[in-house]
Structure formats: C-alpha cells, structure tokens
Amino acid sequence: MTTDIERASECAACDETRRRFLSRLTLMLGSIVAAIVAIPCVGFLLGLRKVPRVWRTVGKLNDFQVGSTVNVAFLDSSPLPWAGVTARSAAWLRRISRSDFIAFSVNCTHLGCPVRWLPTANLFMCPCHGGVYYANGDVASGPPPRPLRRYPVRVQNDEVQILASPVPITTEKI
C-alpha cells in the first residue's frame, strides 16, 4: 500500500499520461461499441427493399372497350404478407386500339393525390388543388408541374398487363 502511494506521488507526470491514455481508451471503446450496434440498425432502416418489377394482369382484352378510360386495381410488385389492402395500386387504363393501351399513374404530379378521370369532360382532375390534365396526360391547368406518369402496358395471351411500378415522385430538376 505505502509503496503504491509512494510510487504514485513519485511520478505524478506518469499518472497524468496514464490517465489521459485511459480516458481516451475508454471513449474509443465506447465509440466502437456504439458503432458496431448502430451500423446494422441504421443500415437496416435505410436499406430500401429492392423489389423486382413484375407484370400484373388487370383483365382480359375483351373487358376493355376501345376509347374508354377505366380505373384498374392491381397488386404491388412484392406485397408483404401483412400488407393487406395497402398492397393494392391503381391506374387509369385506356384502350386506344385493338391491341394498344395507355396506362396512367393515378398520382398527381403535384403532390401525389389520386386524380380522377371525368369521362364526359375528357379530362383528369385532381381533388387536392384542382390540377387538370388533358386526356393524353398533359397538364391542362393548375399546379401540376409535369404530365401524368405512364406505366408500361402489354397484352399477353389475351390478358392486359401493367408493369407494377413505384409511386412516381416529382423531384426538382437541378
């Protein structure tokens, strides 16, 4: 005991260095622990699920009349088992000829509200801020900055299929 105390007082400077080393060591170890826990957690939260885009059948070819625009619902590309009705998506589908279709996203390019097709007016109208689009999806009036997004459509074995796609996000052009 006495020897310890003596030794300590003999070398106050060594104590000082030793303590500085120990506090740095402690802080470093703490940071390492924090990092090895945080990295997987943050990585998990930020990791967006990369999902394959899949074709979804929305009906038989004969279900659609040439010239009419109808609302169709289909499942997301990779619905989680517990997603329930939230896994559903919608599009406005128009048959323009025997074998050609156009599919419009229902999301307004302004802030994403679901636009509605007005068959008698031949226009898409957004209930949120009154954005209006012409039948071809071009902006007719109101706040939307760009035309309605289109989804790829195809006809296969008499079935009309839409490529289930991400919600279109209008970003700023920089």
Binding site: P79, S89, P166, V167, T170
Partner: peptide, 23 residues
Amino acid sequence: GRTPFIGHWLARFILAGDTVGGA
C-alpha cells in the same frame, strides 16, 4: 421528394419502399 439531390431517396425512405405497403 422536392428536396434537392436527396429528394428521391428521402421520399422512398418515408414510404419505406417504392410504394405504400406493409413496411
């Protein structure tokens, strides 16, 4: 999504994916 540079990424972070869904 209107945020410069990281808008698209932010939007998908909020949706927790490409669309509204299970996550």
